[in-house]
């Protein structure tokens, strides 16, 4: 079991009624998909806000950053970096810059 850290954008923290980081226990491989699965079980109101409810595809203006890298275009099944899996570094779920 890994305890990983997730940082949500402010609007989703408000929606989920939380402050600060989220700590999630993940059994098995730590991937985008497994982290989002665990996040949505704990906070069902976030379903559909980060990825599509049905297709599970990332919403267009959501990005996944960790360890100063952008993992947004990686497969949901790709393992996240070791420091994220160990809980040393957070997975950042970010609302992309949009607008002018």
């Amino acid at each position: 079991m890994n305890t990983i850290r997730v940082v949500l954008p402010a609007h989703l923290r408000t929606l989920a009624r939380i402050d600060g980081e989220v700590a999630l226990d993940i059994s098995g491989q730590v991937t985008q998909g497994s982290v989002l699965d665990a996040l949505e079980v704990r906070f069902p109101m976030l379903r559909g806000t980060i990825r599509d409810q049905v297709t599970k595809r990332r919403r267009p203006f959501i990005r996944f950053f960790a360890c100063e890298q952008d993992f947004s275009h990686e497969s949901p099944d790709t393992p996240l970096p070791e420091p994220v899996a160990r809980g040393d570094e957070p997975l950042l779920i970010v609302g992309a810059m949009a607008g002018g």
């Binding site: 954008p9 609007h11 929606l15 806000t49 919403r59 203006f61 609302g95 992309a96």
Partner: peptide, 8 residues
């Protein structure tokens, strides 16, 4: 709703 996070 929001362009980032969809429908609530």
């Amino acid at each position: 709703s929001s362009g980032w996070f969809g429908q609530i």
